[in-house]
C-alpha cells in the first residue's frame, strides 16, 4: 500500500506544526516560572501536558478523518486538536486564558472544545471513550458514515470506561476507533508495572466485532495504514477497532515533573528516532518531494503557529463577571 503523496505531505506539515506548537508552548509555559517553578505563575498557569514526540498517532489517523468525524482526547490533547484542524488561534488563546479562546478562557489546556470540527478533550483519564461511543451511536442512528475516534493513553485502558465502552461498541458494531498511545508511562508508573497484557490491541479478543492492531516504533506510515483499515471498517459498519501505537513521551507527564522514575538516558535515545525527521527523509526519498517544497511546508507550519501565539498574546483577558456566565445556556 502506498500513501497518496498529498496525504504524506499533509502528515509532515501537520507533525511539524504540532512540534512547533509544543516547543513554543514549552517556552511560553516556562515564562514567569523561573528561577523558582510555581505552577500557578506566568502567562500559561496550571498543569501542562505536552505531546512532543507523540505526533504520529495524531496525524496517522486524522489523515482519514473529516470535520464530520468526532475526536475525543484526554489531558494531553494538543497534537490531536491540531491534527483534527481545531482553530489554532482560538485554541492557543484558550490556553492563554483569553476572552478570544475556544471557551473564553474558562477551559484551559485540558478542556478544549471545538464543535465546528467535533473535537473535545478532558482531564479525567478514560472519560472520553464513552463520549466517542455516544458520537458513534449518533452516527449510526442518523445513518451517517461518520466515525468517532477516542485517543487515550495506555494507562486509560485500565479504567472501567475502556472495557464498558468496548463491550457496548462491539455489541452494537459502532463506528468507534480507540487509539491507545502507549508512551510507556502513566505518570510515573510504567506500563509493565500496571498492565496485565502485552499490548492493549490484544484486548480486542475479549469482545465480538472488535479488531485490534499494533503499530510499533512510532511509525507514521504504519499508523496511517492501520488507521485506513480501521476507518474503513468503521464506515462500513463492521465495528470498532483498537489501535495501540508505541510512541514516545520526550517530556515529563507534566511540565515540572521531576521524572525521577525513569533513566535520564532514556529520552536522548528516543529523540534519536524522531518520527518527524524520519518522515522528512521518507518524503524526500520515497515520495520524491523536493527539499524546497518541504521547506515551504515547514515555513507555513511555523507561520501558523507564530500567528496563533501572537493572536493569543495580544488578545484581551476576559472580564471578571464572565466567570458567572455559561453555567446554564
Amino acid at each position: 500500500m502506498t500513501i497518496p503523496v498529498e496525504k504524506a505531505k499533509w502528515m509532515y506539515e501537520t507533525m511539524a506544526k504540532i512540534r512547533y506548537f509544543e516547543d513554543e508552548m514549552e517556552k511560553a509555559y516556562g515564562e514567569g516560572k523561573s528561577p523558582v517553578f510555581n505552577i500557578g505563575a506566568g502567562p500559561v498557569p496550571g498543569e501542562m501536558h505536552l505531546a512532543t514526540g507523540q505526533e504520529p498517532a495524531a496525524v496517522g489517523i486524522c489523515a482519514h478523518l473529516t470535520a464530520e468525524d468526532t475526536v475525543t482526547s484526554p489531558h494531553r490533547p494538543h497534537h490531536h486538536a491540531i491534527a483534527k484542524n481545531v482553530d489554532l488561534n482560538k485554541m492557543t488563546a484558550e490556553i492563554f486564558g483569553k476572552a478570544t479562546g475556544l471557551s473564553k478562557g474558562k477551559g484551559g489546556h485540558m478542556h478544549l472544545f471545538d464543535p465546528a470540527v467535533k473535537f473535545s478533550c478532558g482531564g479525567i483519564v478514560g472519560a472520553g471513550i464513552p463520549h466517542a461511543v455516544g458520537a458513534a451511536l449518533a452516527a449510526q442512528m442518523k445513518n451517517k458514515d461518520w466515525v468517532a475516534v477516542a485517543f487515550i493513553g495506555e494507562g486509560a485502558a485500565n479504567q472501567g470506561s475502556f472495557h464498558e465502552s468496548l463491550n457496548m461498541a462491539g455489541l452494537w458494531k459502532l463506528p468507534l476507533i480507540i487509539v491507545v498511545e502507549n508512551n510507556e508511562y502513566g505518570i510515573s508508573v510504567s506500563k509493565k508495572a500496571s498492565t496485565a497484557i502485552e499490548s492493549n490491541d490484544k484486548r480486542a479478543a475479549a469482545y465480538s466485532n472488535v479488531a485490534g492492531a499494533y503499530v510499533k516504533d512510532n511509525d507514521p506510515e504504519e499508523m496511517y495504514r492501520v488507521s485506513e483499515e480501521a476507518v474503513r471498517r468503521a464506515r462500513s459498519g463492521e465495528g470498532p477497532t483498537i489501535i495501540e501505537i508505541e510512541t514516545y513521551r520526550y517530556l515529563g507527564h507534566f511540565q515540572g515533573d521531576p521524572e525521577l522514575y525513569r533513566e535520564q538516558s532514556e529520552v536522548p535515545s528516543l529523540r534519536e528516532k524522531d518520527p518527524i525527521l524520519k518522515w522528512k527523509n521518507e518524503l524526500i526519498e520515497k515520495f520524491s518531494v523536493p527539499v524546497q517544497e518541504i521547506q515551504e511546508m515547514e515555513n507555513r507550519a511555523r507561520q501558523a503557529v507564530d500567528d496563533a501565539y501572537r493572536f493569543a498574546r495580544e488578545s484581551e483577558e476576559p472580564v471578571l463577571s464572565s466567570a458567572l456566565e455559561d453555567v446554564f445556556i
Binding site: G40, P45, G46, G97, K98, S103, G105, K106, G107, G108, H111, E317, P318, L320, S322, A323, L324, V327
Partner: peptide, 16 residues
C-alpha cells in the same frame, strides 16, 4: 464559590 465550576483563567479563578 458562587455556584459556578472553577474557571481556568487566573483572574477569573481568583474572582470566584
Amino acid at each position: 464559590i458562587p455556584d459556578v465550576p472553577i474557571p481556568y483563567n487566573r483572574k477569573l479563578e481568583q474572582y470566584v
